Amino acid sequence: MMLRLVLSTMVLSVLTGGALAQEAQRPQVSQCQLIAEKIPNVQYANFTPSASGAPALTLAQVQEDVVITFVGHSTFQIDTPAGISIATDFNGWLRTSRTPDVVTMNKAHSSHYTLNPDPAIGAVLHGWNEAQPGEPIEHRLVVGDAYVRNVPTDIRSWGGAMEPNGNSIFIIEVAGLCIGHLGHLHHELTDTHYGEIGRLDILMVPVDGGLTLGADSMSRIVKRLRSALILPMHRRGPPIETFLSMFDDSFDTQISDNRGFTVSMRTLPKKPLILVLQGV
C-alpha cells in the first residue's frame, strides 16, 4: 500500500526520569482535531506536498513506522516509532507481546477492562469516571512520541437504560497518524462527537452486529469518518461478510493472513480499505 500523502507534523514529548505521568504537564494540541472545521458541517483537510513539491519531513528526519497488532476481541497493541506500547480495551487476560506503557479500558463488559492491571503498566486510562459516575472523564496524556486523548460516549446498562459517559472513544496520535478505537459503542455519534474526534486515519470498529451497534448504524459511522484504514474488531455471531456487505466499491476490502502490520502516513492506502486481520 503506497500513498502520496506527506507527513507534515509530528508530536513529540520525551519522558524524563523514566516515569510516566498520568496526565501531560502542559496542554497538548491535537493534530487530529485541528483540521476539523465548524460543526455541524465538519470537513476534513487533505495532506498535500509543499509548493516546491518537496516533502515536509524526510525519512532521515523522523521515524514514522507504527506497528499495529490485533491481540483479540477489542484489544490492539500499538507500538510507536519511539518504542512506546499502547494496548486498547485492556482486560488483563488477553496478553500483549510486552507489558504496555499505556492501556485504555472501557467498562461495558469485563472483557474490556480490569480493575487489577499489572502494576508495571505506566498509565491506566479508564473510559469512565470512577469518582463521579455519569460525569465525563478526560484524558490528555503525552507519553514519548504518543498523545492519547478520549471522547466520552454513553453505554447501555444490563437493564437496557443508557448510562451517560460510561465509555470513551480513545484516540492515539503518533507519527502524524490519528488512530481511533470506538470501544464498546452503543449509539450513533452526534455532530459534536465528530467534531471532538476530528480526523481518523485508522479506525478500529466493533462489528458484532448488535451487542454494540447494528451493522447498518456502524457502517454509517465508518462512512462519515472515511478513514484510510478500517480495522474490524469485536466480532461475535454474524460473519464478517455481514459487515462488509454494507459498503460499496468506494471501499476496498482485504482479508489478511497476519495479525498485525506496519503503517505510516506514507503507506496509508489512497482508497479506504477495510482490513480484516487474522483472529477477527
Rank of each mutant, 00 (worst) to 15 (best):
S111M: 13
A36F: 06
I86N: 00
S256F: 04
V174I: 14
L229M: 15
E163N: 11
H193Q: 02
Y147I: 00
P206Y: 04
T212L: 05
R26F: 11
I274D: 13
S264L: 11
P239E: 07
Y147L: 04
I121D: 06
G122V: 07
D257T: 14
F251W: 08
L273Q: 04
V14G: 03
V174S: 06
A54T: 11
T80V: 03
P117K: 10
N150R: 05
S256C: 09
L244G: 10
G214F: 04
E188P: 03
R95A: 03
V124L: 12
T104Q: 12
T96H: 00
S250P: 12
M1V: 14
D248N: 14
E163F: 06
G83S: 04
E173G: 03
L244S: 11
L5H: 09
I35T: 12
H109I: 13
L185F: 09
P40S: 05
N258R: 10
T153S: 11
L273H: 03
L59V: 13
A51T: 15
M10V: 15
M162K: 06
L34C: 08
G198L: 01
M204Y: 05
T88C: 01
H112S: 15
V276K: 01
L213R: 07
I221N: 07
D257M: 07
L275V: 07
H109M: 13
R236P: 04
W93L: 09
V42I: 15
I172T: 12
A56D: 09
A56V: 12
I137N: 06
A45E: 15
Y147M: 02
G159L: 12
R220H: 08
T262R: 07
P55A: 07
M105V: 03
